[in-house]
Design a binder for these strands. Structure first.
Lengths: 338, 338
DNA sequence: GTGAAAGCGCTAACAA
DNA sequence: TTGTTAGCGCTTTCAC
């Protein structure tokens, strides 16, 4: 079969190798799959023949008969968000270690796109990690029934998950702010559907209570730069001295708006984010943030997924918790006011 | 076949649908592939049967018999680099429009990883776009012989490519600097293997010549933040008043180092980058940069690739050129010195 | 240890 | 227009 410009020489098949090596095709197959079950010298002949012909197994054919494609899907809401860069990297790392390929499905912040790309990808992959999704818990459960699945930063009873230790991270941030003399902390909330958002706010309230700091919640806003800009309006009429934002993007958007108004950070207001994405260290002042181990998040998820695919029965229903740490930069400081 | 926890109910096949609809399997196949060639009511029956069973064609089986997987590969050197975020987005956009899936292969800045992931992915895809690659021209040509291919920001005789209009962009940057009173411009070079680097430096020299500005080249440095930091040392003993960097990351790295030293930007030195990645607008001062239409770059590449796959004979050998534009922010200004 | 043969689910001739 | 029949390239019993 030809296509495009010119003829593509079709790859040699297992039959070509078999003929050249003087064995049956099934023996060739065996030689690759279970080298132990074939005579040493036969195997040698086969390997030589294969090398000579430049034989490469056709993964599609293999997948058809074994129904193992050696592909997994990673579903995220927006490739463009720096949050996912490191996560993708981690996922790829873990996958390639076991010779798996990861199919990125980017929802582009749209649920119809999410559905479509999922449908396209689902029948091809052996499992899926949900990096983020707009789908409801029940929809996800339906899918999990069909294919191995693991979710990130979300808790779904019965479905294995990997999450970051929000409570501890928040606690550290609150302590930090407390030490700097702040008495009130305002939380700028992210999407209500976000499990992490709920966790963060709850942890903040609790930590505030324990440490005798007042906490308040405004929002929700979109988890984007624009969301951060929008948050400015929610901070009127009295600008708080300390605010913790749903994520770094929101924090950065807010900081920029504030700075443009002439508000000084951290002198007038301290700002804290979540995740520690690359821009957090690039902006001025540098953003203090509760860092997630993004890369590890990706690799752990894939590692666990692969284990499940291999047949591991994930006994525990508890989420796999990854540690966070507070990265202190210049966006937080002792308040001049009050 | 079961796997993992519990039994996965196997998907209905074309045979199930055929039986339920009371037709031959091939008719079912036809009904989906060429609805025109089947009776309206037969088609209707088939569709109903399929819907009732929840039938979904098995893409693997389809791919095996047609040798069309509806997948293409996008090869990049580093997912973590913000440069690729928008590019990936564009590629996905164009691909999903034609119901193709894109396989991201991330070289992680390593040539062995690049080779491996390419090998794994090549037999599965119908074509490949080279976003960036360490491979030599001749190696790429060998691959191009086997599969449709399109390269970005690189010129390979006989292989279709999409590039950004560096000359014009550089020209605009130089004019801008000239208007601000600068008389010397230093170029911080990127990787020597980079085609874009050569283009940029050459265009800079030419523009400088025409506009009677002195130009100088230092480097090369790595195309990263660290590269930008390293570039600082190359700017001794006399800090130039204007520098153009290979890309935004280098420019940002350099700016940060400079700022940390107390050098004022743009008062002491003006800095220009390339690409206009997200952080360029986030840093302070905002980075003046020659913007590439990143998303369009990705979508154009994929669009052209898909056209070739469909059998378009790409008559022209000339690269497809995309326009650039100068985005002026705060990192450039009138020099105080001289 | 090796070969023969059937089959994975779909498409593509070729007949009818 | 529809059904019949071979495959696509590989894996996997099951004999030998």
């Amino acid at each position: 079969m030809t296509s495009g410009d010119g003829t593509r020489k079709s790859q040699p098949t297992i039959y070509d190798v078999a003929r050249l090596a003087g064995v049956a095709p099934s023996t060739v197959s065996r030689a690759f799959a279970r080298p132990g079950r074939v005579n040493a010298d036969t195997a040698q002949r086969i390997r030589e023949a294969a090398a000579q012909l430049g034989y490469r197994a056709n993964p599609v054919a293999r997948a058809l008969s074994t129904s193992r494609t050696r592909m997994i899907a990673l579903m995220i809401s927006d490739v463009t968000n720096p949050y996912y860069s490191e996560l993708i990297r981690g996922a790829q790392l873990a996958a390639s270690q076991e010779e798996y390929t990861v199919l990125l499905t980017d929802a582009r912040e749209s649920d119809v796109v999410e559905r479509e790309s999922l449908e396209r990808v689902l029948p091809v992959v052996e499992g899926i990690v949900i990096g983020s999704s707009r789908m409801s818990d029940s929809t996800l459960r339906v899918i999990a029934k069909q294919t191995p699945m693991i979710v990130l930063n979300r808790h779904l009873a019965g479905i294995p998950s990997v999450v970051t230790d929000n409570p501890r991270g928040v606690r550290r941030a609150v302590e930090h702010l407390g030490e700097l003399g702040h008495e009130h902390i305002t939380y700028v909330a992210g999407p209500e559907a976000s499990w992490a958002d709920g966790m963060r706010w709850r942890a903040l309230r609790e930590a505030g209570h324990e440490l005798h700091l007042h906490t308040r919640r405004v929002g929700p806003v979109a988890p984007t730069l624009q969301g951060g800009r929008d948050a400015r309006a929610l901070l009127r009429p009295h600008l708080p001295t300390a605010v913790i934002c749903y994520n770094d993007l929101v924090a950065i958007g807010l900081m920029r708006t504030l700075t443009a108004e002439g508000v000084r950070i951290p002198d007038d207001v301290s700002v804290v984010g979540f995740d520690n994405i690359l821009p957090a260290e690039l902006v001025s002042p540098g953003l203090t943030t509760v860092a997630s181990p993004l890369r590890t998040l990706g690799s752990t998820a894939v590692g666990n997924l692969l284990a499940i695919i291999r047949g591991a029965l994930h006994t525990t229903d508890k989420p796999f918790v990854l540690p966070t740490r507070l990265v202190v930069r210049e966006s937080t400081g002792r308040t001049a006011r009050r």
